[in-house]
């Protein structure tokens, strides 16, 4: 019973419920902005205005994704990178900026998340409002009947206290399991956010590792992984395999040199 009712005493449950409730407003706004921006930008590509509109839309998408990332991290405890790594964007006019934005895989996964946010938010909102209504409905029914309010379900009119108590057991069951249902449903949003917004591009990881090595006089892979965890947080975006593969790539490109400290390889910026 504690497993079922315990979440009611945890702030996490209410944060997830709030995320499910407000998500619809965010989803509508984000979908509208992106569809309008992309439609306008692509439609006006034959003119001089199209490119700036497209660049602006991608930049707005990035800002919205950053906001969604913070929301998911704080309200859903989603394992996402803690801060947006500085993009090394080329100086240049819109064409160069657009090319840099559109060739980054993270941009497309962010746009995909923002587009999927609306249908997911509709499902989230429907679920949470249906759950709350079903819970409150069974408890409110006897009071409504006592107050003389005419309540009907289809052609069945509920006009006695005995009839109004029929839904009470269902509401009680939903009340008991409700918190776990909210957390379980929130897990879907959490996983979706982690999948789409939790990307860490290889280029970003390389820059981050090079920054770490520049500040230290050599570090082994464990220290690099710890330092990355402190900077970015922990999640599936930061695994030993990713760090190992990135170090191999940096070695191959000559940005990093390796020496040995006993059996452990020590990496340093070249």
């Amino acid at each position: 019973m504690r497993w079922l009712l315990g979440p009611y005493t945890e702030a996490r449950t209410y944060r997830v419920a709030a995320y499910l409730l407000v998500g619809l407003a965010f989803g509508v706004f984000e979908f509208t902005v992106l569809v309008t921006g992309f439609s306008l930008g692509v439609g006006l590509l034959v003119t001089i205005i199209g490119l700036p509109v497209l660049v602006a839309t991608f930049l707005v998408a990035r800002s919205l994704a950053t906001m969604e990332r913070r929301l998911a991290r704080s309200w859903l405890d989603a394992p996402l990178p803690r801060r947006r790594l500085a993009q090394h964007e080329p100086n240049g006019f819109f064409w160069a900026r657009l090319r840099s934005l559109t060739t980054t895989p993270r941009t497309w996964s962010e746009v995909a998340f923002l587009m999927l946010r609306l249908p997911m938010a509709v499902l989230d909102f429907t679920f949470i409002t249906a759950l709350i209504s079903a819970i409150l409905g069974g408890f409110a029914q006897p009071f409504l009947v006592a107050a003389g309010v005419d309540t009907r379900i289809g052609t069945w009119s509920i006009d006695t206290i005995a009839e109004s108590l029929i839904f009470l057991p269902f509401s009680l069951v939903l009340l008991v399991v409700g918190a776990r249902l909210i957390l379980g449903w929130g897990e879907l949003s959490r996983r979706m956010a982690a999948h789409f917004l939790g990307r860490l591009d290889a280029t970003e990881l390389k820059h981050e590792i090079l920054d770490i090595l520049a500040r230290t006089e050599g570090a082994d892979a464990f220290r690099i992984l710890d330092e990355l965890g402190l900077r970015l947080g922990h999640g599936s975006f930061l695994t030993p395999t990713r760090v190992e593969a990135t170090l191999i790539a940096l070695q191959s490109s000559g940005h990093v040199t390796v020496s040995r400290d006993g059996s452990r390889p020590v990496f340093a910026a070249a």
Binding site: A221, F222, L225, T239, P240, T241, E244, R264, P265
Partner: peptide, 16 residues
């Protein structure tokens, strides 16, 4: 294989 390599290998096996 060094310790970090073994850690990465275990992580890959767990993911698989």
């Amino acid at each position: 294989m060094d310790e970090f390599g073994e850690l990465a290998l275990r992580e890959r096996e767990a993911r698989r």
